[in-house]
Amino acid sequence: MAFRQIFVLIVSLAVSIPGWTQEIEVNPSHPDQYTVVKGDTLWDISGRFLRKPHQWPLIWEGNPQIDNPHLIYPDDTIYFSEVDGKPRLSLSPSGFAGDLGSSREVKLYPRIREMDLVDAIELIPSEKIAKYLASPRVVGQDDLENSPYVIDFAGEHLVAAPGDRVYVRAIEKPESLTYTIYRKGDTFVSAETKEVLGYEATFVANTTLQEPGDPATLLVTRSTSEIRMGDRLMPHQEGDFTLHYFPKSPETEIQGSIISVLDGVTQIGRYNVVAIDKGVSDGLKVGHVLDIYKKGKSVRDPFSKIRNDTIQLPNVLAGTLMVFRAFDRISYALVMEARQAIHVLDKVQTP
């Protein structure tokens, strides 16, 4: 196994964040301390201490010696305390005997920890979003219509698989030596204006360019489904993605809607992946957290003097989501909490 030595001077595990711009809502039933177990996520651990788990970076005391605040491991112990009336979380690594005075102030000293990084506690279950990090993409209509497309297969093949060659129109001046084959998926439409915001480009296969031209010849190196004539190609993108997130509220007021569920379910629950109709151009960034509101029902008022009078009930807080991939006008988000069933067209907004 590959191990890495992590040299840590721990006063308390933390992210340095200037100022206190948000009111910290402490979970009234929080424990004084919690020992991490395998299978925990940082979000779940924070929820034991806070009403809003995404506020956890605000109460880790700053420590510039720590490059990665996510390096928490099973058997580590998290402590809750208040300093100058403000809540704080601190950490004692497993096997370390700290001095817990009557104030529960944890005194920690320089030491070496040698741990397998893959064992560190994650903020969210990475397996829930892994397949959505590099693909599918969100593209404009022109991006697909103007892209090269598969016109035929080499040999006698009716479908192409890894190791087979495909003919593509037209790659005469290659932008890359590797191309990804996509197929048009869902159309993303604004819930309010009904404007088309983008199209889902669903991953089909990876290819390498063998011979440019019209047609060009490409070798299929990996595929997840059969390749069809007419499938479109775009230069392969190496995604700059991370599974280490710093959740926080957007700096601007966001009002949007859930417009699609990426895994095809009808009722949305915890850890489902959804698309929302707001993106980078609206001020959203990876790590931004939004509240989800279930639209209130329209009910008839039988006591009103107005015939067939109806009234709109208020929207109800239904859960929380976190953006993990942001495009220009669309974002993919993971539902972190679901108090009740969530549906497409439910509202999302800045907490």
Results as ranks from 00 to 15, higher is better:
residue 294 K to L: 10
residue 298 S to I: 15
residue 252 T to Q: 10
residue 141 Q to G: 07
residue 170 A to G: 13
residue 143 D to V: 13
residue 217 T to S: 11
residue 90 S to L: 07
residue 102 S to H: 01
residue 180 T to V: 14
residue 25 E to I: 10
residue 83 V to K: 13
residue 120 A to F: 02
residue 65 Q to V: 02
residue 202 T to H: 00
residue 109 Y to D: 03
residue 100 L to R: 11
residue 126 S to F: 06
residue 241 F to S: 08
residue 323 V to H: 00
residue 169 R to G: 08
residue 173 K to D: 08
residue 342 I to K: 05
residue 304 S to D: 06
residue 288 H to A: 04
residue 316 V to A: 05
residue 130 A to L: 10
residue 25 E to V: 13
residue 333 A to Q: 07
residue 100 L to Y: 05
residue 307 R to L: 15
residue 80 F to A: 12
residue 100 L to H: 10
residue 134 A to M: 07
residue 316 V to N: 00
residue 326 A to V: 15
residue 270 R to D: 07
residue 103 S to V: 10
residue 116 D to E: 14
residue 3 F to A: 10
residue 44 D to T: 07
residue 161 A to F: 14
residue 133 L to R: 11
residue 176 S to F: 04
residue 269 G to F: 13
residue 84 D to P: 00
residue 65 Q to T: 12
residue 142 D to G: 02
residue 201 A to Y: 03
residue 275 A to Q: 01
residue 112 I to N: 11
residue 351 P to D: 11
residue 283 G to M: 04
residue 191 A to G: 13
residue 73 Y to F: 15
residue 323 V to P: 01
residue 150 V to Y: 00
residue 319 G to D: 09
residue 251 E to M: 02
residue 170 A to D: 14
residue 128 K to M: 12
residue 142 D to Q: 12
residue 47 G to T: 12
residue 33 Q to N: 15
residue 101 G to M: 02
residue 260 S to V: 04
residue 27 N to F: 04
residue 145 E to C: 03
residue 294 K to H: 14
residue 26 V to A: 06
residue 300 R to M: 14
residue 100 L to D: 07
residue 133 L to Q: 10
residue 74 P to M: 06
residue 305 K to M: 12
residue 124 I to Y: 12
residue 249 S to W: 03
residue 50 L to Y: 07
residue 312 Q to Y: 04
residue 186 D to Q: 14
residue 79 Y to A: 09
residue 93 P to N: 02
residue 9 L to M: 03
residue 112 I to E: 08
residue 88 R to V: 14
residue 184 K to R: 15
residue 88 R to M: 09
residue 56 W to M: 07
residue 319 G to V: 06
residue 128 K to D: 10
residue 188 F to A: 04
residue 297 K to T: 03
residue 132 Y to F: 15
residue 300 R to Q: 12
residue 269 G to A: 04
residue 281 S to Y: 14
residue 72 I to T: 07
residue 251 E to N: 12
residue 105 E to L: 15
residue 91 L to E: 09
residue 171 I to D: 01
residue 280 V to H: 09
residue 134 A to N: 12
residue 4 R to I: 15
residue 95 G to Y: 13
residue 270 R to W: 06
residue 287 G to Y: 12
residue 13 L to T: 02
residue 304 S to I: 06
residue 331 S to W: 01
residue 233 L to A: 10
residue 212 P to L: 08
residue 286 V to K: 07
residue 113 R to I: 12
residue 218 L to V: 09
residue 161 A to L: 13
residue 216 A to Y: 10
residue 209 L to C: 04
residue 169 R to T: 15
residue 99 D to C: 02
residue 230 G to I: 07
residue 194 K to M: 09
residue 164 D to F: 10
residue 13 L to S: 15
residue 125 P to G: 13
residue 70 H to C: 12
residue 72 I to Q: 05
residue 249 S to T: 13
residue 261 V to H: 04
residue 123 L to T: 02
residue 173 K to R: 13
residue 314 P to E: 04
residue 42 L to V: 14
residue 42 L to M: 13
residue 322 M to K: 08
residue 268 I to G: 05
residue 351 P to A: 06
residue 114 E to H: 01
residue 65 Q to E: 14
residue 114 E to Q: 11
residue 88 R to F: 02
